[in-house]
Nucleic acid binder design. Sequence first.
DNA 1: AATAATAGCACAAACGCTTGCGCATTTCAT
DNA 2: ATGAAATGCGCAAGCGTTTGTGCTATTATT
Lengths: 334, 334
Amino acid sequence: MKTTIKDIAESTGLSITTVSRVLNGKAEQYRISITTQENIKETAKKLNYVPNQFAANLKSGKSKTIALILPVLSNPFFASIASEINLLMYKHGYMTILTDCDENIDIENATLNKIQSYNIEGLLIAPSGDKYEKILYLHDTGLPVVCIDRYFEGLDIPYVATDNYAGAYSATEELIKKGHKNIVCIQGNKESSPNRQRVKGFQDALMKANITQATVQGDAFSMENGYIETMLILKGKNIPTAIFTLSNTIALGCMKALKEENIKIPEDISLITYDNSLYFDFLKTPLSSIEQPLSEISKIAVRILMAKINGEELHSTQIFLNPEIIIRDSVKSL
Amino acid sequence: MKTTIKDIAESTGLSITTVSRVLNGKAEQYRISITTQENIKETAKKLNYVPNQFAANLKSGKSKTIALILPVLSNPFFASIASEINLLMYKHGYMTILTDCDENIDIENATLNKIQSYNIEGLLIAPSGDKYEKILYLHDTGLPVVCIDRYFEGLDIPYVATDNYAGAYSATEELIKKGHKNIVCIQGNKESSPNRQRVKGFQDALMKANITQATVQGDAFSMENGYIETMLILKGKNIPTAIFTLSNTIALGCMKALKEENIKIPEDISLITYDNSLYFDFLKTPLSSIEQPLSEISKIAVRILMAKINGEELHSTQIFLNPEIIIRDSVKSL
DNA sequence: AATAATAGCACAAACGCTTGCGCATTTCAT
DNA sequence: ATGAAATGCGCAAGCGTTTGTGCTATTATT
């Protein structure tokens, strides 16, 4: 049997009220004597008391819990974000309920429903698709919501993301600068805002350079997609001189296909990718990439969320961070 | 205002009891008519009803929630495990509260305290240190607990881990087979069981081959540790012919140091590491490694946990899985 | 027609905690 | 000595559910 506040009350001969107040640090406020406070705290320790959050939250409505919903944790990009956010929230005294949606909108929706049952005080989400109804509903309901990485254009839901357009633009520029004109872009989840922005950046950069051919193919932020699309590219008639992959996972699949087909980077084909990885420096051909400020994204997202939770007014809640291009050796100068 | 079961009761003219029963699928059991059932379900939808878990859990004591406590999510090894477990538990109808302890025993302890407040039904943990008191206490208390990857020797807490001894042994054997005699092992967290087992496997393999020199250094499963220790090795007088790193993160740090010092793998020094990575195939020198069965670990851990939660008897709850050695090109034959 | 079953639902307590209010008792000022 | 203020604490309602028990119609049985 777990010991409750009542046991402490009985054991000390004090009332439940007083015990609750002492244990919640409201002793001063209610003028509980030091003696009583110590007495209560001691017997709480002695009885191994652990408060029941469910009971506390039921009454107070505060859960000290937030939800973090991500498309997929096995992608290092999201894993890092999860790691940071988790730690930051912990420092703010919050628990994090995490859900990996497996890029599945149904799981996301079910989770979104379920978390409401937990009286969460905030929601941090990188949406798996472009269905915003539920999220918007929660937001309108007054729940502090912050989108991470992926967001919804035109809505006033706070978000923090990198400037995907700029990142893709500069990656493409880099290719063009090195003389590439026949470039194909392997994209990810078409329903996600980062993907749309990146594709747009890619296309606009080409257009600016008067390159009319702008092939964009693929449909998932996955290694498999990268592999398949690369194979398709290699087996086609018009093989490009460069590939731009829109995520680290896609890049991995792409490299796998290239390796199998014995195509050398950058001699035979150039490659640049969105997302950075610690491994990129050590690859056979160090991979040029667009690095997102992971740590900053997490910090700002938490900052905004906490502000919302605490009712603080923020000047701006829709934040774009600048990605950085890291030039390594995977793009050949034609 | 959130709609409660009471609102539904009022709206339908039925009692709270009946509403609760219908909504919990206990209609048959209490012979609630189909008409009533449908009526209740419909108005529940109409009113946008979301059950309050806190209230439900308070009464029932069941939370449909488990806790997953990991040392650090940014390590792909744990990220993958988190991803899988999260999904599996979701399919079992459970929410997962995740905590990234940052390899910090204090955070772990605080978390362990806190989760009790959440009436969690199970605990999945890869301990950050070797302090088992709290975990053992929870286990003895009747809470289903399963250790992942790291476990406590001599206790009967269930665990699922890879056979770290065997993995390290075979990695070392591989080095010896290729003629290496001067090998140093860069270890991780000395307080963790995998580290101890791996070090032992390393030492035993050397002993078996009558190699008396067995240097083991370092103290963290981190890139930084790998970097520093490698630098130390390179600056020393007796430079080994091979390095065995005990994790992917350590290997990364090691490679960084080697690159900076312009030491080539495997020409100048051989390297083999514990943990596999999707990137290993694409490295400048594809890295030989010991692969752990990530997916199986997660599945079995969840299987055991669910069995415990459901009061099912299991034949064995302390499981070792076999790691696999993947030979690539990072070990030179002397 | 009288009794027994069954169907269909409601009462009310309880889960462990928070909190607005209020009541003694003591201390202080005058 | 007396009223006012301060001190120290308890009452009891209520948060939204679940659940053992029991009550009333309706139907079946003979």
